[in-house]
Amino acid sequence: MTREEVYEELTEIFRDVFDDDSIEINDDTTSEDIEAWDSLEHVNLMLEVMETFEVEFNMGEVNDMKNVGDMVTMILNRMS
């Protein structure tokens, strides 16, 4: 998968989890930028990400991941 393709899928997930079709994400997006992105939703988000991309993150990585750029990089790393 390419970075762009990951972004496409990821944007869908974000819009779905946070129930907002207007969400746009980029490398610098963090939980500060999306109001509904609190700690509860963060875990739901990560669960969706892991299911969709069929990758595994451990607890520490889930907690640590706070901006989208990191997330995409980790997804790509895990997928290869």
Partner: peptide, 11 residues
């Protein structure tokens, strides 16, 4: 509590 109780439970 979030990082060491909540997240592990939800995951």
């Amino acid at each position: 509590l979030r990082d060491y109780i909540m997240t592990p439970i939800l995951m």
